[in-house]
Simulated scan of single mutants.
Amino acid sequence: MILEAVMLQVKQGMEEEYEDAFRQALVIISSTKGYISHELHRCLEVKGKYLLLINWETLEDHTVGFRQSNEYQDWKKLLHHFYDPFPTVEHFEKVRFS
Rank of each mutant, 00 (worst) to 15 (best):
D20F: 04
R96Q: 12
A5W: 05
Q73L: 02
Q9L: 03
E19I: 04
S98W: 02
E39R: 07
K49H: 02
K77Y: 07
E45H: 08
G48T: 03
F82L: 02
W56H: 11
I28V: 15
L52E: 11
D84N: 15
A5L: 13
L78E: 00
L44N: 01
N55H: 10
D61Y: 02
M1W: 03
H80M: 02
K11S: 07
I28K: 06
S37M: 09
K76H: 04
G48R: 00
F92S: 13
I28R: 09
S37P: 05
L53C: 12
V6A: 05
M14C: 01
R96K: 09
Y18H: 01
I28Y: 00
K47L: 06
V95M: 11
H62A: 12
K49I: 00
V64N: 14
L78T: 02
R67Q: 12
T32C: 06
G65C: 01
V27E: 12
F86M: 15
L52W: 01
T58E: 12
T63S: 15
D84R: 09
H38M: 11
P87L: 09
V27G: 14
A21Q: 08
V89Y: 05
I36L: 14
L26F: 00
T88I: 00
R96M: 12
R96E: 15
L52G: 09
G48L: 02
Q12S: 05
F66L: 03
I28M: 06
L8E: 04
V64W: 05
E39V: 09
H80Q: 08
Q68C: 08
M14L: 11
K76Y: 03
L3C: 08
E4F: 04
Q73R: 03
Q9S: 04
E57G: 02
C43Y: 04
F92D: 12
V64E: 14
K77Q: 10
Y83G: 03
K33H: 06
Y35C: 13
A5G: 02
L44A: 13
T32D: 05
L8V: 12
I2F: 14
Q68T: 06
Q68L: 07
H62I: 11
E19D: 12
D61G: 09
L51Y: 03
